[in-house]
Amino acid sequence: MEAMELRDIISGSVPVKVRSDATVADALVAMMENKTDYVLVDRTGPDDAYGIITRWDIVEKAIAEGEDIKKTPAVDVARRPLVTTNNMDLDIRWVAKKMADEGVSKLAVFDRENFLGFVSDMDILKAVVGRHKKGAGQ
């Protein structure tokens, strides 16, 4: 496999955000209306952490436990803090390893302090078969 780096596959799309006091139902609606499979939960201040909710989180942590999704706060099912990576030269093998180890499907990518976007499991799979688009990190 030719060496491919994180900067080759990162896409610069802007993630959908919900408020920090949103419920799981709000996150689900935001997800469906924006046709995305994850939403960010905003932080309450600079010392707070962002959270991320995927479809899996809603299914596994809210619906499977019989919670009322209109009452459960989104932060309860969110993964906080985000799993991040800041080395743009990282071989995608290690990006994949990090996802597998952490059990997540989205990694937040930072270039020094600047947030660049998320890299998803599908981005990596497309990259290894040569179907990726040229990313924003180039």
Binding site: L28, V29, E33
Partner: peptide, 27 residues
């Protein structure tokens, strides 16, 4: 699939709101 479940819950919520006569607005 998990997407089926998410869609099912979303559609049920939308139906419930429509029956109440409220326009479905997102957060």
């Amino acid at each position: 699939t998990e997407s089926c479940i998410i869609e099912g819950v979303y559609n049920a919520m939308r139906r419930a709101r429509l029956e109440e006569g409220v326009d479905f607005v997102s957060c």
